[in-house]
């Protein structure tokens, strides 16, 4: 059935996209602005891309952001996958209870989670800094792993695991040879989600980091009171491009994989 396109729908979509992308375009365009002031165009220049790499504060923040995001997502993958497995094999009551606790950080406002962790770190006497930041990020990352792995586990045929055990595999072998390949897409999705959330987080980092360690978000926030340096526009343009390229590669590859699978089936 061929439907006729409504031109209004096209105009409406264009307006919504304009709304969503206008600030991003402004940001990218102004990263090439030779003038320092926001809102005034002084001609094309790459000077902010050059000074960016000499700005040690921003480079430190970038390093902290990436390191916290990678480490916390990796640790969250281990704890979260183990937790999902344990829940899968445990009684329904235990599972419901743990799932409810898991959804708490997602239900709660970021500001409440941030403050509650700040209180905890102060209470146990942990100095705010890299460690507290990392622990906070692991905490809000674990739910994303569990919620991505659980559905994959539920699709799993329980018999295959038991079959592997009957054939003499140790539980660990059975897990790595039988279950892991099946649930790994869930783990990867969870990891990417957690990594993204970690990089984008501002509120929880703001409350759980100390004065001498800051992530990009925290750095941008403190800058926004004094006026944003144009270098940060350059940096986010680069990061945006990096993510865009990465996502395109992933999309193209998964599209090709899907095609290949389709062909093999035929």
């Amino acid at each position: 059935m061929k439907k006729k396109r409504n031109p209004l729908a096209g105009i409406y979509s264009a307006l919504i996209f304009l709304f969503l992308y206008a600030p991003i375009v402004v940001l990218i365009v102004f990263s090439f602005n030779s003038s320092k002031s926001r809102g005034h165009w002084g001609g094309f220049s790459l000077r902010w891309y050059e000074t960016l790499f000499e700005n040690s504060k921003l480079m430190d923040a970038l390093q902290t952001t990436l390191s916290v995001a990678l480490t916390s997502s990796a640790i969250a993958v281990i704890i979260g996958t183990a937790a999902a497995l344990g829940m899968y094999f445990s009684r329904k009551r235990t599972r419901t209870l743990l799932m409810n606790v898991t959804s708490l950080p997602m239900l709660n406002a970021d500001i409440v989670t941030g403050i509650s962790l700040l209180l905890l770190f102060t209470f146990i006497g942990l100095k705010l800094g890299y460690t507290s930041l990392l622990l906070a990020h692991i905490t809000f990352n674990i739910p994303y792993i569990i919620l991505s792995v659980m559905p994959k586990l539920n699709q799993l045929d329980k018999n295959t695991f038991e079959a592997a055990l009957d054939l003499g595999a140790t539980p660990l072998q059975a897990f790595f040879k039988v279950m892991l390949p099946e649930i790994s897409p869930g783990i990867i999705t969870g990891f990417i989600l957690a990594f993204t959330m970690s990089i984008d987080d501002f509120v929880i980092s703001f409350f759980t980091t100390g004065a001498d360690v800051s992530t990009l978000s925290v750095e941008i926030y403190s800058m926004s009171r004094r006026g944003i340096k144009p270098e940060i526009n350059a940096l986010s343009t680069l990061m945006f491009l990096a993510v865009l390229i990465l996502l395109i590669i992933v999309n193209v590859r998964s599209g090709r994989d899907a095609q290949k699978r389709e062909q093999e089936r035929i």
Partner: peptide, 23 residues
Amino acid sequence: IKLALIPYSAYALIFIVAPILLI
């Protein structure tokens, strides 16, 4: 396999439940 729950249960108790009680 259920032992796999222990690290997370401990983690959730310390970093999810206790902080809310502290508030």
